[in-house]
Design a binder for these strands. Sequence first.
DNA 1: TTCTTATTGCAAGTCTATTGCAAATATCAC
DNA 2: GTGATATTTGCAATAGACTTGCAATAAGAA
Lengths: 140, 140
Amino acid sequence: MLELTIKKGLRATGRRMTRTRQAVLTLLERTRQPLSATEIFDQLHQEKVSIDLVTVYRTLHVLKELGLVVQLDLHQEGLSRYELKEGRKHHHHIRCQMCGHIVDLLLCPLKNVTKLIERQTQFIVDEHTLEFTGLCPECQ
Amino acid sequence: MLELTIKKGLRATGRRMTRTRQAVLTLLERTRQPLSATEIFDQLHQEKVSIDLVTVYRTLHVLKELGLVVQLDLHQEGLSRYELKEGRKHHHHIRCQMCGHIVDLLLCPLKNVTKLIERQTQFIVDEHTLEFTGLCPECQ
DNA sequence: TTCTTATTGCAAGTCTATTGCAAATATCAC
DNA sequence: GTGATATTTGCAATAGACTTGCAATAAGAA
Ligand SMILES: [Mn+2]
Ligand SMILES: [Mn+2]
Ligand SMILES: [Zn+2]
Ligand SMILES: [Zn+2]
């Protein structure tokens, strides 16, 4: 169960399960879209959960450190989004330029990409960004 | 020739070729690495070229509009970089986590990716990001 | 319940990027 | 070249994402 895994992870690093962390986790759990810090802040406030934006940032940072959450930096959004790992394996995303809607792409081998994606998602693909990070010869 | 192409593009949209635009272009032309606005600003100042950071941003915006420059938003850098198109065709990048060095990847079909890249660049690939943008069914 | 220590909220600050506006300058007509 | 006109620039202010310092608060162990 997710909540147990999380508590265990928090404990193991001398951290505590708090109401605010609970609230952020619950929200991430029931939301399909990857959320930004501000979106989490706004949504929780609408639900009358008192939490500071700073705390949202700090919570996301901890969850990422524990490997429970993935940070997404989608092209030209100028902000980070977060989604729970929870079972889901490595995958990619497509975002609508118009409405901002984000959909998981359940492929990765990266071949026949555009056409496959268009068939699979009904999107019309316009651009894509592919980036790698690693260690260059001098830094290894 | 590049300078001619650029002047034509500027003229066609009622714009002018100025010293500052010239300076930014020249710098981009002789630099292999994709540059950020701040890097361009700093470099030009070192070369005693008087230019405001705002002007650098505005120049890059115009060059992008004219299709002369590509804007790169590399994973977790928190800033944009720019490189001249000038002949080069669509390609991707790899950045060293340690020193920030960026190298062009001259492939794109996106297959056998990691191993090919590691052989080709001598990098050790750690992570990669692949993103698409387009129009979702509702917005087409 | 009490004590210790992690966590939170608030305020202030950082950094990238954008905008308003008056002054400077490129281009064109003369 | 001179002057008219429209673009471009610099400066100051602003926006927005994210971070940091610190005192007050709350979690969890005893
Ligand atoms: Mn996803
Ligand atoms: Mn490149
Ligand atoms: Zn992948
Ligand atoms: Zn490509």
